[in-house]
C-alpha cells in the first residue's frame, strides 16, 4: 500500500504543479493581452485622421478682443483665415503700439498709484488667464471626444492616399446635434470628400459643454481636417 502511494505521490505533485503553472500562465497571460490591445488601438486612432480644431478656435478667441468683430468671424470663417496672414504686419504694428501705450500708461500709473495696487492688478490678470486656460482645457477634452467619434465613424474610400486633406466646416446646435456640414477645402478626390462628410453626418450628435459660453466659443462652428497618414501607399 505504501509503495503504491509512493508510485503516485510524485506524479500527483507533478500534475498539481503543472496545473498551478497553467493557472498562473492564464492569470499572467491575461494582462499582456490587455496591454497589447492598449498599445495597438491608439496607433490606429492616432493615424487615421487629424482634427484641427485648435488652430481654428485659437485665432477666433485671440482675435475677438483685438478686432472685436464676432459676427464677421462667425459668418465667414473661411475668408477670415487668410486675412490674418495679410494683415499680420499691421496687427503686429498695432499691438506694438498698444503695448507701448500700455507701458507708458503703466509708468504713469506707477507714478500715481501705489506699488500695492499694481501688484493686485497683476494677480487679477494671472487669475483671469488661469480661467481662460481652464476653459481651453475643458474645450480640448470635448474636442477630443468629437475627434474620437468622427474617427470611429470614418470609413475611408480605397482611393484615399496619405496626405490628402479635406477641410469641413461643422455647425452644431447647443444640444450637440450636427445641423450643417460644408466642405471648405476639397482634397481633390470626390469619394474622399464624401467619406469625410459622411463621417460627420454619421456621428450625428457630439458631446458638447453645457455652458453656453464655452459652446458658443468653441463648438457652434468648427473646422475638421481630414488627413489619413497611416495608409501604406
Amino acid at each position: 500500500m505504501t509503495s503504491q502511494l509512493r508510485y503516485y505521490f510524485v506524479p500527483f505533485v507533478l500534475a498539481l504543479a503543472l496545473h498551478a503553472a497553467a493557472m498562473m500562465a492564464l492569470y499572467a497571460g491575461w494582462n499582456p493581452d490587455r496591454e497589447e490591445s492598449r498599445l495597438i488601438k491608439p496607433r490606429m486612432v492616432h493615424a487615421q485622421l487629424i482634427v484641427l480644431t485648435p488652430p481654428k478656435v485659437r485665432p477666433k478667441s485671440a482675435r475677438q478682443p483685438v478686432v472685436e468683430k464676432t459676427p464677421e468671424v462667425k459668418t465667414a470663417p473661411v475668408k477670415a483665415q487668410p486675412e490674418p496672414v495679410e494683415k499680420r504686419p499691421d496687427l503686429d504694428a498695432i499691438r506694438r503700439e498698444q503695448e507701448r501705450a500700455e507701458r507708458e500708461k503703466l509708468l504713469e500709473r506707477l507714478a500715481e498709484t501705489s506699488f500695492w495696487d499694481t501688484l493686485q492688478e497683476e494677480a487679477d490678470d494671472l487669475t483671469a488667464s488661469d480661467a481662460a486656460d481652464e476653459e481651453a482645457m475643458i474645450a480640448r477634452s470635448y474636442q477630443f471626444g468629437v475627434y474620437k467619434l468622427v474617427v470611429a465613424n470614418w470609413s475611408r474610400p480605397p482611393s484615399a492616399r496619405n496626405n490628402m486633406e479635406a477641410k469641413m466646416l461643422v455647425e452644431l446646435v447647443p444640444t450637440g446635434d450636427v445641423v450643417a456640414v460644408t466642405l471648405l477645402t476639397s482634397s481633390g478626390n470626390e469619394a474622399f470628400d464624401r467619406s469625410a462628410e459622411a463621417a460627420v453626418r454619421k456621428a450625428r450628435r457630439f458631446e458638447v459643454p453645457v455652458e453656453s459660453k464655452l459652446f458658443e466659443r468653441y463648438f457652434r462652428r468648427f473646422t475638421l481636417l481630414f488627413r489619413p497618414e497611416d495608409l501604406l501607399r
Binding site: 506524479p11 500527483f12 507533478l14 500534475a15 496545473h19
Partner: peptide
Amino acid sequence: LVLASLASWVMIFQRWFS
C-alpha cells in the same frame, strides 16, 4: 473537467515513469 485533467495528468506522469 479540472478534476479529470488533474487525474489524467497524474496517470500520465505515473505511466510515463513506470
